[in-house]
Design a protein around this nucleic acid. Structure first.
Lengths: 192, 192
DNA sequence: AGCGAATTGGGTCAATTGACCCAAAATGTC
DNA sequence: GACATTTTGGGTCAATTGACCCAATTCGCT
C-alpha cells in the first residue's frame, strides 16, 4: 500500500501551497510539482481539484480531531488552573500561525463549497461537545448545565476567532490563557 | 465629481462578486461587467487588481467603523440588559451572513497581503478600544480596569469567530445575546 | 515470471487571465 | 468655445488554467 504514502505526500504538498500562495494559487500543476510527481499521477489520485480540496480538509482536521478523544488530565488543581492549562494547550499548537492561515483559506473556500462546509461544521460540533464534557468534568458538581452550555457558547467562537484578532493583543500565550481562564471561571461560579 | 460615484459602483460590483464567486473568481473583467463599464475604464480607476482589493476592504469596513463613533445609549437598565442590547445590535447587522462570507474572503486574502492585514488590524484595534470604552461607561465604578480588559480579550475574538461556528448553535439571536450578556456580566462582577 | 496498480511524460483543448496600449468619443467645467 | 477628465471599445500579449487522453514504464506483489 504505497498509495497512502503518496496521497499523504500530495496532501502535504497541497497544504504547503495553500499556505504559501493561497487557494487561487494552489493549482493542480503546482501541487504536482510541489509533490514531486507528474500532473497525470496527481490526477490519478485526485481526479479533480475539488476532490483534492475535500481530502485536504479532512486530512488537515485529523490532528485536531484526534485531540478531542483524549480526556483531560485529572490532576488536583483549582478550576482556574485547569482552565488555564486547557487554553495553553490550544494556544501552543505547533505552527499556530501557519495553521491559522490555512483555516482562513478553508473558511473562505467553504463559503461556496457545501462539502467543505459540512465537514467543518461536523468538526465544530465535535469540538463543542468536547468542551461541554471537559467543563462538566472540571467544574464543581453543583454547577448547572446551563452555565456550562453558556461557557461553550462563548468559548467556541472565541477560540476560532482568536487567530483573526490576535495581533491586537500584545500579550504572551501564558498571560492570555490566564485571563481567559479567569473569565471562564467567573462564568462557571455558583450564583452569589 | 462623478468619480466618487463611479468608484462606488465599481466597489459594490466587486463586493458582489467577492461574495458570489469568491476571491479567485473576482476577476477584473467580471468586475467591469458587473459594474456595467468597460475593462479599460475599470483599469483607469483601479490600475491593478491589488488596488481594487485594498479599496474594497476600506469601503467594506466603513459602515463598521462608523458604528464605533456613536456612544452607547445611556438608558437606565441593569448591566445585563445593556450588554444584551449591545450584542443584539452586533448580531442584527443587516445581511449578517453575506458580510460574514466577505469577511472570510478578506481574512484569507490578508494572509498574503500586508496592506490588507494592516487595515484589518487597525480596524480591530479600534473595535477593541470601542468595547473598552463601552464597558467602562456601562459598568459600576468600583470595577477594576483589568476586568474590563479581560472581557475585551474574550469578546473581540468571540464576536469575530461567531460567524465561523455559528451553525453549531441552533439558537436565536435573542437568546444568544442573552447568554453572552450573562457570561460577560459574570466576568465584570465585583469579586465575591 | 506474471499481473495489476502506480506512475511517467508527453500532449491537446478551449478558456481565461492581468496587464497593457491606443484612438476616439463623451462628459463635464471654466 | 476650449480644455482636461472620463469613458469607451477595440485590440494584443504571453501565460496559465483544469480537465482530459494515452502509450509506455516502473513498481510491488504473489
Amino acid at each position: 500500500m504505497v498509495i497512502a504514502d503518496r496521497k499523504t505526500i500530495i496532501l502535504e504538498a497541497a497544504q504547503t501551497l495553500l499556505l504559501e500562495v493561497g487557494n487561487a494559487g494552489m493549482t493542480m500543476r503546482r501541487v504536482a510539482a510541489q509533490a514531486g510527481i507528474s500532473l497525470g499521477n496527481l490526477q490519478y489520485h485526485y481526479p479533480t481539484r475539488d476532490d483534492l480540496m475535500l481530502a485536504l480538509l479532512l486530512k488537515f482536521l485529523e490532528p485536531y480531531e484526534a485531540k478531542l478523544d483524549r480526556p483531560l488530565s485529572a490532576a488536583h488543581q483549582p478550576l482556574v488552573e485547569k482552565l488555564k492549562a486547557l487554553f495553553m494547550e490550544a494556544l501552543h499548537y505547533p505552527e499556530f500561525d501557519a495553521c491559522a492561515s490555512i483555516f482562513k483559506e478553508l473558511w473562505a473556500e467553504s463559503v461556496r463549497s457545501p462539502d467543505l462546509k459540512k465537514v467543518l461544521n461536523a468538526y465544530y460540533a465535535r469540538l463543542a461537545e468536547f468542551y461541554r464534557t471537559a467543563f462538566a468534568s472540571i467544574v464543581p458538581p453543583e454547577i448547572e448545565a446551563s452555565k456550562i452550555e453558556r461557557a461553550v457558547m462563548v468559548l467556541l467562537p472565541m477560540l476560532e476567532g482568536y487567530c483573526v484578532t490576535k495581533d491586537v493583543f500584545e500579550i504572551s500565550n501564558e498571560r492570555l490563557s490566564a485571563e481567559w481562564a479567569k473569565a471562564v471561571a467567573a462564568m462557571l461560579e455558583p450564583d452569589a
